[in-house]
Design a protein around this nucleic acid. Structure first.
Lengths: 209, 209
DNA sequence: TAGATTGTTAATCGATTAACAATC
DNA sequence: TAGATTGTTAATCGATTAACAATC
């Protein structure tokens, strides 16, 4: 690692680089220049080189970047090989859909358990994951120490669930409730997916005149 | 409207302001200063005032902002009263969950139709929305001219669906496929929700050291 | 070798923060 | 009126772009 501080803007672009490189790789493309990658992505070559320079030197003058290698490096930076453990709390429609469809492994996460309060769901197995009673959450966390919790609980339960899980040692939250959740523990990381915010920006852009 | 160009950064913050004001309003709070709102949101008062100044003058010296009024103004800016029409293409797990749970109306959208190719789904009604055969998409669009399409089709069908719908006059896409979609028509707006990108930034932050 | 392209330094551009006169 | 707080201008900070020497 080269730089101690990497800006949020750079971090947000990393997964996109990763996606493009993955795509190029799967198309059998072996090498790419910052110029060519930039024009595909609609950004400047300068920005790509500047971004990558935060983490090291991955290219070669006169050649560009080896697609497979760079993909691996960025995956490394993002931590996709760290095999983080993840639990999901709340298995309603959305939680269910994520368990069913989302490729946690591709992002380096292993979905190990699901929790809900609904008797209809408890005991069911979805995509190989057993839905357990929320009452067992504490015991489970003490025993397995999951890294991250995916929150798909009702809004009203969002913050209390976070507080509870932080006390149990969870240090990352992927939050799908439309509430902002926080913790005074600075080691806890939050990443939220705000559907409504996303749609509202689209609304703004198609409303403009 | 005061400013012709409003930066992406500002636009992205607007829904968050809207959410906070909505929350304050529902708590019965009548007025708020930029200072107090800023400390709640974890941003500077300066930024709030600067952001709002792109759109007009909504406050009053010595008083601050009327919560209800400002909420309405920002809603207006975002276009939540424009009553955009929306269709959903692809009613798999995720599409189903969105139809079932997401409050389209709160964002000013009316979900008018759903389309899929699966015979098991066609004819079903989900949350008051009838799932129609994808074959009827063209006729539907010609007749109803929907503003926006929510894309929850398989990745492989993403771009072709967009091309098809753009030709039919759709000018906004809320894209949930993990593919980037585009159009050479500059009037078409895209807003994507990239689950994997989101989780990867969390992975980065909990992996760092 | 000559051409291409990197990594990095410098220049520019834009966004955030600070300051303050205006005024409710 | 005096205190509070706005909207806006100016200052600062950071991010993006351009340029170029180094070198594969």
């Amino acid at each position: 690692m080269k730089k101690q501080y990497v800006s949020e803007a750079v971090i947000r672009r990393l997964p996109r680089y990763y996606r493009y490189l993955d795509d190029l790789h799967s198309k059998g493309i072996v090498r790419i220049s910052s110029n060519s990658l930039g024009s595909r992505m609609g950004i400047t070559a300068s920005q790509i080189r500047q971004d990558l320079s935060c983490f090291g030197e991955f290219g070669q003058q006169g050649y560009g970047y080896n697609v497979k290698e760079l993909r691996t490096e960025i995956g490394q930076i993002l931590g996709v090989n760290n095999s983080h453990s993840l639990i999901i709390v709340g298995v309603g429609n959305l939680g269910h859909a994520l368990v069913q469809n989302f490729h946690f492994n591709d992002a380096g996460f292993s979905l190990d358990a699901a929790f809900d309060i609904s008797p209809q769901l408890i005991g069911q197995e979805i995509n190989g994951v057993l839905v357990q009673d929320l009452k067992e959450l504490d015991d489970y966390c003490r025993e397995h120490l999951p890294d991250v919790a995916l929150l798909t609980v009702p809004q009203s339960a969002a913050q209390s669930t976070v507080d509870h899980l932080v006390a149990l040692g969870v240090r990352g939250f992927w939050n799908f409730t439309n509430k902002e959740v926080t913790s005074d523990n600075p080691d806890v990381q939050f990443e939220s997916v705000h559907f409504a915010d996303s749609l509202l920006t689209l609304s703004y852009r198609i409303s403009k005149r």
